[in-house]
Structure formats: structure tokens, C-alpha cells
């Protein structure tokens, strides 16, 4: 079985509130999977469960070959996570940040050095790597954050709105990098609000009020609802779902 992520009826309740309501999905190895949904749909909660940060209330799943309930600590070594918040230390330089995160994943010495060089080449970090991370322009920070997340060559990379607040050129370059990673066999699990980005994904799921209401390739979904593009499809789906209840 070479699926990177498999979840069945995954549910998370916070008290009376059901943040994630019995979702099931499967992501193949090397796939770029778009995880869409309106704000508050439960995407971040779902990702946290997949990353082993949060235990589900019910349901089960396997990520990178590990059980998300029993082996959530093992999952952490096999995945990379880039959150929507800027998650590097602003007072440390880019390199210090990379060294720090690399060491947490057990990289050290020559191996760490080689990985930092390779990541910095892939992301064209150049001389930005020696500046305090807090002083970098937003686009460069995001690249650096991606660098920190892929240093240990994770099998699966979770990206939670990785391109928020970044200009279109940076976003395009960022996605080029993601494609390179996918080509090398990394599975990418991406949340985004940009529908043009969603169309870069091989398959997408659309989540609303904790449930997955649609799942398939962007083309199939657009065709199914007879809309001009993904943006209109997304909006009409969410509105229709709201009206139904």
C-alpha cells in the first residue's frame, strides 16, 4: 500500500462543538493534494490531527505508514509542517534557524551542512540566509520557513496556507519549488484560499463545517457543477451547503 495519508471517519470534538465531522480521504504518495475550505471549516484542526499534534475524538488514520493515534510521535519524524504563521525565530539568522530545526530532526555535522546547502540552493536563499529572519521580506521568510520544513527530507509535507500575503510572482516561484519536491516523491498536503493555486493540485477536497463536501480533481469538480472555474464552483458549493442547512 503506497498511500501517504489514509483517514477513516476522523472526528474531533471540542466540548459540544464538532470541529471535524467524520472525514475520510486518501492521498497517494507523490501527490499534490489541495485541502480547501472556508475559514473555520476545520482544516487546521484536521491537519493538526494528521501531524500528530492533536488526538482525534474518534476515527482512525495512517500517515506515512504510522497510526495517528498510537504512533503520533513517530509521524513527526516523517513529516514536515509549515504553518500559516511565520514560525521562524526573528532574532536568529536564516542559517541559525535552519541549523536549529535540522538538529531537532537529528541532523548534525556534515549531513546538516550538505542539507542546508542543498535547501538554500533549491530555494535560492543566497545571502538572505545570513540575515536575521525577522528582517527579511515576507516572500523570503516563507521560503526560509519552507526550507526549515524540508531540511530533513520528509515523506509528507503539510502546508497550511503557505502563501498568505505574498505577491503573485513569489507565489508562482513557490509553487515551482513545490512541484520540484513532488517530482522527487514528496507528498504535499496543502491548504489555500487561492483558487489558482488549488488548480495546481492533482486532487482537491472542499471542506465545510467540519465535513468534506466534495473530493476529486479540480477539472472533474468544475464539470460536475457546470461552473466556469474553480472559484465559482467553490463559492456556489459553500452557499448551497449553507442554504441546505
Amino acid at each position: 500500500m503506497n498511500a501517504a495519508v489514509v483517514v477513516n471517519n476522523l472526528t474531533k470534538k471540542f466540548g459540544d462543538f464538532t470541529a471535524v465531522d467524520s472525514i475520510s480521504l486518501k492521498v497517494e504518495t507523490g501527490e499534490i493534494f489541495g485541502f480547501l475550505g472556508a475559514n473555520g471549516a476545520g482544516k487546521t484542526t484536521a491537519i493538526r490531527m494528521l501531524c500528530g499534534l492533536l488526538l482525534p475524538t474518534s476515527g482512525d488514520g495512517i500517515v506515512a505508514g504510522h497510526d495517528i493515534i498510537k504512533e503520533n510521535e513517530k509521524i513527526k519524524s516523517s513529516i514536515g509542517y509549515m504553518s500559516q504563521k511565520f514560525s521562524l525565530y526573528p532574532d536568529l539568522t536564516g542559517k541559525e534557524n535552519l541549523v536549529f530545526y535540522g538538529s531537532l530532526y537529528g541532523l548534525f555535522g556534515d549531513r546538516l551542512k550538505v542539507r542546508i546547502e542543498s535547501v538554500s540552493e533549491l530555494l535560492s536563499l543566497g545571502e538572505f540566509i545570513d540575515r536575521p529572519a525577522g528582517s527579511l521580506p515576507v516572500g523570503w521568510r516563507q521560503r526560509l520557513a519552507l526550507g526549515a520544513a524540508i531540511l530533513h527530507e520528509p515523506k509528507i509535507l503539510f502546508l497550511d496556507e503557505p502563501t498568505g500575503g505574498v505577491d503573485p510572482v513569489f507565489r508562482r516561484r513557490f509553487w515551482e519549488t513545490l512541484y520540484k519536491l513532488a517530482d522527487k516523491g514528496t507528498t504535499l498536503f496543502v491548504t489555500t484560499h487561492y483558487m489558482d493555486e488549488a488548480e495546481f493540485c492533482r486532487r482537491i477536497s472542499i471542506m465545510h463545517r467540519g465535513r468534506i463536501i466534495e473530493l476529486g480533481t479540480p477539472g472533474d469538480i468544475i464539470k460536475k457543477y457546470n461552473q466556469p472555474n474553480l472559484q465559482e464552483t467553490f463559492i456556489s458549493l459553500i452557499l448551497a451547503s449553507d442554504n441546505n442547512g
Binding site: E73, K76, S87, L104
Partner: peptide, 14 residues
């Protein structure tokens, strides 16, 4: 506050 804690916890540290 800055979100680095979440990042730390996704890495293999307890």
C-alpha cells in the same frame, strides 16, 4: 504567541 511552539511540537521533540 508567535507560532513557533506549534512548529516545535510538529518536530520530533517531546
Amino acid at each position: 504567541e508567535t507560532g513557533t511552539m506549534e512548529q516545535l511540537l510538529t518536530s520530533p521533540v517531546t
